[in-house]
Nucleic acid binder design. Structure first.
Length: 869
RNA sequence: GGGCGCUUAGCUCAGCGGGAGAGCGCUGCCUUCACACGGCAGAGGUCACUGGUUCGAUCCCAGUAGCGCCCACCA
């Protein structure tokens, strides 16, 4: 006999199965060579990263879907990989260099990039090891990295094609610049936060000395780069000064007053200083009025020579100095407190600077239409669908995408400039001569591409595109995409655009959006708050399976999950329960087959649990098909615990022990086996371990999803169960211990509570009932009623009659209340005429039942006699 | 300024047009031969508020309040 420890030990159970699964190749789609493909790609975590709770939730959802599909016979592929995470990774390596007092410039580009690769070789495996530790069924033979040769080819193909199509261009634009990372950022890489700042009012004197105009700014230092003042064209206050000039204080530049619709006459004085090089709106005003753009900052946001005597000060020092200087000249009118939103770099938190510079852009408009259409028509579906609105809104207001980054780690832009004629060559192969003049002196653009450029290609680049590989043919489009709402814009929207434009087909059909895992108090987990819980720590202490089950049960569609360790503890206790249920099973059955094996002729109890198993399997399947994971596994959890363990296993004990086995041992075996299968997608380790004991044939990870046979539930089981509960409650209410002997006679005129159950009744209620035909006429007995069945309990020597009277009065009051409600409802004519017939009938049945029950309870109270009646 | 979400048992959250649910916590009883990481029986909710639709609303609609998130060229 197979020996099992009496307690579930997650650490021990989770030690070895992963290697066995991998060695057996079950995670590869080839495991089901004839199956229909089912494909999902992991949202590639940053190669610098470490697994956090968000990954744990995201990956668990993936694994539940993928493992189930695999068990259903699909050629399931979950493709894993990592993202090179340009800025983030470069920052990590630069920090290491800084610790040695060096910068990347000390190394030079080539050596620095080599060093990042070295770092990646050394540390990049951490997160993939963590994914394995969590039991995720990813196909590691197909692991990809966004800077692999193949993916780099895809990136280059896309860049070259978009360039040739005129959808990638280079130009001077105001972009968001991080003065710490020294690179451009796209719009969505800037995080805006409301901050209390200042609104500085400044006088700009008219050049002819006839007075001044007052402007207001939150960034006084930018006045050093002002090249104009703008007012609204219809603003009567300034009608006469439009076209004249003011003299810029501290600088002395004569700058024009222009009229422009972008000015809000209601704000401040209605006159705005214009700094085209350092504000996007001002840039546009400048373009319209042909104003000069004067950049006053260097790449670190330190004032440059254009700032005259302020040169060398960083932006904040310059702000103070400029204000002081203005004050000294009597041109500072005042400073008000002012709340406005300030942009920060999403990688390092530094306040970003709008900066005029030469960058590469993707013109997104031509890509947007089909991407909107695909979701509009339902070809691509968001779950929950409310995210579609955000998607539409974002797509409809998209501006061109800044794709160049002034860092070294990433896909280098495949553009070469001719040193002789300035012609730009963009090509798949590194050119050796200029496409225009034939000159041999070419310089490659130093910039690399936005990390998200390569992520956008992930659903097809990972499968071999642009080469027409077997994997690409078989697994593109992917079926689903699972991610948090926080990267819908960064990633999902761009994959849809690129997928539709390049492979020419949608990248996936269903986009499943889940919430964020938060701290138990609902706050975001963050290092600065010190409330981060590491999933690996949880896995070490409580097990990966319990963590997975806890996350799945907590994750209602699209809702955030406040993480509570108590859920994990509860999930571990469930594992222990399952463990011991199988241990019980092993005492009585052996050779449980991997499939089938359902008893041909089950008795009523077995038929009951088998009918429930079939029903619950159907419900779980339906819920999982709708991606309602928490509902599905909540349902299954309750079924397993409160029906299989608490009732069926208890019911089966007596007949098995008495040798009057019937089909019980067999049923126990198959029901437990099917539970292992149903639970396997969420808790793969413990179910695999238990499978090895109970079934021992092959791997559960490669087994077939259950399809239990349909049975009609035997009549009267609920009546029987209710009666057992009432007997137990009777004892509890009278302060009797659970096994206190009772003398009971059961009248079952309709034969509902089959005498076959007498053994069960004895076993579960700890009494030996006598079945009687007629309702006995006795005093000193009370009755417990369930449907048409009545159990007469002798009160002799065991019960305080007053207590029993009290119990009955409570029961009567309770039923009277329900009865009254029911009567009222049925007395309402509009209810009986308008409500569906079945609802009305149900109500009538209820009423009849209440009346019968009340009648019996009253009779009983009479039988007890005594005061007050 | 626009949009979205949340408000249900002491706590954290599911549910969602026809008799209020889970986990944890709480009360009482029980070391019964799978499990004390357990069993049995309980207590505990005017389902934020106000209107409306409906035979019927925790669930649909409108509004109010509080909390949270996203978006917006908020000089």
């Amino acid at each position: 006999m197979d020996v099992m420890e009496s307690a579930y030990d997650p650490q021990r159970v989770e030690a070895e199965w992963y290697e066995r699964w991998e060695a057996a190749g079950v995670f590869r789609p080839e495991h089901n060579p004839d199956g229909e493909p089912f494909t999902v790609v992991i949202p590639p975590p940053n190669v610098t990263g470490s697994l956090h709770m968000g990954h744990a939730l995201n990956h668990t959802i993936h694994d539940v879907l993928v493992r189930r599909k695999r068990m259903q016979g699909f050629a399931a592929l979950w493709l894993p990989g990592t993202d090179h995470a340009g800025i983030a990774t470069q920052n990590v390596v630069e920090r290491e260099l800084a610790a040695e007092g060096m910068t990347r410039h000390d190394l030079g580009r080539e050596e620095f990039v080599d060093q990042v690769w070295e770092w990646k070789r050394k540390s990049g495996g951490r997160i993939t090891r963590q994914i394995r530790r969590m039991g995720m069924s990813t196909d590691w033979s197909r692991e990809r990295f966004t800077m692999d040769d193949g993916l780099s080819t895809a990136v280059r193909r896309v860049f070259v094609d978009l360039y040739d199509q005129g959808l990638i261009y280079r130009g001077d634009r105001i972009i968001n610049w991080c003065p710490r990372c020294h690179t451009a950022l796209s719009e969505i890489e800037v995080e805006h936060e409301e901050e209390t700042g200042e609104l500085v009012h400044i006088r700009y004197p008219f050049s002819d000395g006839s007075g001044h105009v007052e402007v207001a700014t939150t960034r006084a230092e930018t006045m050093l780069g002002d090249t104009g003042v703008a007012v609204h064209p219809d603003d009567g206050r300034y009608r006469d000064v439009v076209g004249t000039t003011v003299t810029l204080p501290l600088v002395g530049r004569e700058i024009p007053i222009v009229a422009d619709d972008a000015v809000d006459p209601e704000f401040g004085t209605g006159a705005v200083k214009v700094t085209p090089a350092h504000d996007p709106t001002d840039f546009e005003i400048g373009e319209r009025h042909d104003l000069e753009s004067i950049s006053i900052f260097d790449e670190s946001a330190v004032v440059n020579e254009a700032g005259g005597r302020f040169a060398g000060l960083d932006r904040y020092a310059a702000r103070r100095a400029v204000k002081e200087a203005l004050e000294a000249e009597g041109l500072l009118v005042g400073v008000d407190e002012h709340t406005h939103s300030v942009g920060h770099c999403y990688r390092c938190g530094t306040v970003v600077e709008p900066w005029l510079s030469l960058q590469w852009f993707v013109e997104v408009q031509p890509l947007v239409g089909p991407a909107i259409e695909a979701v509009r028509t339902g070809d691509i579906r968001f779950v929950p669908s409310r995210w579609e609105n955000s998607y539409f809104h974002w797509m409809e207001n998209l501006r061109d995408w800044t794709i160049s980054r002034q860092i070294w780690w990433g896909h280098r832009i495949p553009a070469w400039y001719c040193d002789d004629c300035d012609h730009v060559t963009v090509a798949m192969e590194d050119p050796t001569e200029c496409g225009a003049c034939g000159g041999g002196s070419l310089t490659q653009d130093p910039d690399v591409l936005d990390t998200w450029f390569s992520s956008a290609l992930w659903p097809f680049s990972t499968l071999g595109w642009p080469t027409d590989t077997e994997d690409y043919a078989r697994h593109y489009p992917n079926d689903i995409l699972i991610t948090g709402f926080d990267i819908i814009y960064f990633w999902v929207a761009r994959m849809i655009k690129m997928g539709l434009h390049f492979p020419g087909r949608k990248p996936f059909s269903d986009v499943i959006i889940h919430g964020l895992v938060r701290a138990s108090d609902g706050q975001k987990m963050s290092k600065s708050l010190g409330n981060v819980i590491d999933p690996l720590d949880v896995a070490e202490e409580h097990g990966a399976d319990p963590l997975r089950l806890a996350l799945i049960q907590a994750a209602a569609p699209g809702q955030d999950v406040p993480f509570q360790i108590e859920w994990v503890e509860a999930a571990r206790r469930f594992g222990n329960k399952l463990w011991n249920a199988v241990r019980f099973g092993l005492n009585h059955v052996s050779d449980v087959p991997a499939e089938g094996g359902y008893p041909e002729d089950p008795g009523p109890e077995a038929r009951w649990i088998l009918s429930r198993l079939a029903e619950v399997t159907d419900e779980v399947d339906a819920l999982l098909d709708e991606y309602r994971f928490s509902d599905a596994y909540g349902r299954l959890y309750n079924f397993a615990w409160s029906e299989v363990f608490d009732w069926y296993l208890e019911l089966a004990k007596a007949p098995i022990r008495d040798g009057d086995d019937g089909a019980h041992a067999q049923t126990v075996g198959v029901v437990l086996r099917d539970l292992l299968k149903l639970f396997h997608p969420v808790v793969p380790y413990v179910t695999e371990e238990l499978w090895s004991h109970l079934v021992g044939d092959g791997l559960l990870a490669g087994a077939r999803w259950p399809e239990p046979p349909r049975h009609d539930a035997p009549e009267g089981f609920d009546v029987f169960r209710d009666l057992v509960v009432k007997v137990r409650r009777f004892r509890a209410e009278h302060g009797l211990s659970p096994r206190h002997p009772l003398e009971i006679e059961i009248a079952d005129p309709d034969g509902v509570a089959s005498p076959w159950w007498s053994v069960q009744f004895a076993s579960l209620a700890d009494v030996e009932p006598v079945f009687v035909d007629a309702v006995p006429e006795r005093t000193g007995w009370t009755r417990l009623v369930s449907g048409s069945v009545q159990a007469f309990v002798s009160l002799e020597g065991i019960v305080d009659v007053d207590a029993e009277r009290e119990r009955l009065r409570k029961a009567i009051a309770d039923v009277e209340g329900q009865l009254a409600a029911s009567q009222k409802k049925l007395a309402n004519e509009s209810f009986t005429t308008r409500a569906p017939a079945e609802i009305v009938q149900k109500e009538r049945d209820k009423l009849a039942e209440f009346e019968a029950r009340l009648d019996k309870l009253r009779t009983q109270l009479d039988e007890l006699g005594g005061p007050g009646d």
